[in-house]
Structure formats: C-alpha cells, structure tokens
Design a protein around this nucleic acid. Sequence first.
DNA 1: GCGACAG
DNA 2: ATCTTGTCGC
Length: 239
Amino acid sequence: MNVTLAHPLDVTTAEARAIQTELADRVSLEDDPRLRDIHLVAGIDNAYARTAARTTAFSAVVVMSWPELKVVEVGQAQREITFPYVPGLLSFRELPVIIEALSGVESTPDLLICDGHGLAHPRRFGLACHVGVVTGIPTIGSAKKPFVASYDPPDMTPGARSVLHIGPEPVGIALRTYSRRRLPLFVSPGDRISIDTAADLAFAMTPKGLLPAPQQAAHNTVTSIRRNYIEHAAENENL
DNA sequence: GCGACAG
DNA sequence: ATCTTGTCGC
C-alpha cells in the first residue's frame, strides 16, 4: 500500500499542532463512493515496549474480507521512536510505525479502522484523520475513552447511540457495542466518511465484544508481537 | 492556578 | 499505552 507524506513527523509539539490545523481542512465528511461496496476492511493498532534506553513501537494492520470478516492479510512493523505521548498529538507518535506496517500490505482496503479518535479531537484532526489523509482511504476513528468530547450515556442496548459533542459541534457517536461495559465505544470520522456512516459501519463490524473485529484482531496481533519481542529481549540485546 | 488528558 | 495483585464470574 502506497502512503504519501506531505509533512514531516519529526517536529516540535508547536509545529505538530500547526500541521494538524492545516491538514484538518483536507478532511472530508462526505461518504466516499467505495463505501457503497466494501470488500476489504483493515484494523490498525499499536503497542509499546519501553526500556531505560529506548521505546520501541509496534504496529499491526489486519485486513479482513467483508462481510465475512475473515483475515486476508496481516502487515506489521516495529520501530524505535522518540516522540512522546502528548494528548492531542498521538498521530505524530504512532504514524511512523503505522506507515511502515501499511507499506508491507499488498491489498488496498476500502476502509481503515484506527484505534483512537478522528474528528473528536481538539483541532478536529485525530490519528484517524491523519491516517486517512496520508492514505487516501476512508477511515474511522474508534476509541475506548471520550478524550475531549462530551456525551449522554447511550442506552445499554447494543446498537444504542448518542451524539458526541465538543461544545455545540457534533464530532462523532457514542456507540453501545457491548452491554457489559460502562463506557460505550467512541466513533468518529477519520476521512472520507460521515459521522452516521462511521457509526453504522463500526456497529456492523462488531458482531461480538467491544471493538470492531478488524480493530480487535489488530490489537490481538500487536499484543502478541510485543509479548514475543519481550520474551526474546535477551537475544535482541546482543544484536 | 488546578485538573483532565485518545494511546 | 504499560505495570501489576487480587478478585469475580462463566
């Protein structure tokens, strides 16, 4: 999969915020035509292993068929990183290794699901927006916590939803995908998708559990990769 | 100034 | 996110 970067990622926090504000104008909340006939959907998730000397980031991209939700392809990457976790600047920390994982994927998904927010972001440019803009693929942000958005708790019935707001502005949907968890799933558009379609597709792709199947699969995969890395830490140190 | 803060 | 003991439930 080809990824085009129009801006650097190794920047200061002030520069990162300026880049977000600029790129936010390129985000589209219109449903992309390819969403009418989805064949492939990919979930993306990262994990970290930190030592005194360095922080290693891991990323997994799991491509699934739709509507079967069977794994078609898996891309992965690991990379030493320096950008810290700063609330609101997550994409500058996660994008480098995500791009590396995406570049190893041969197929071209019709939809991407990212672990994190999209529009529901201080500058309306969360991780999912950034991933969508650099890939050109319709993208959904799917987060487990609300971050800066407010909402009324949706009914406990799976499928129930309420609008996510930042001030008066609707930025996503609080979606009840799992009845046994207090918090709902926080879904917002990344790029080339509307708020309602993002919620509809996220729910349709969550036959069980809290997360959409591709996102859950990516989480399981990257967690396994990280665990394996740590188990072999001794050998890796000798390289 | 204080608290909160995706992953 | 990661760390990390104990605890509750299927």
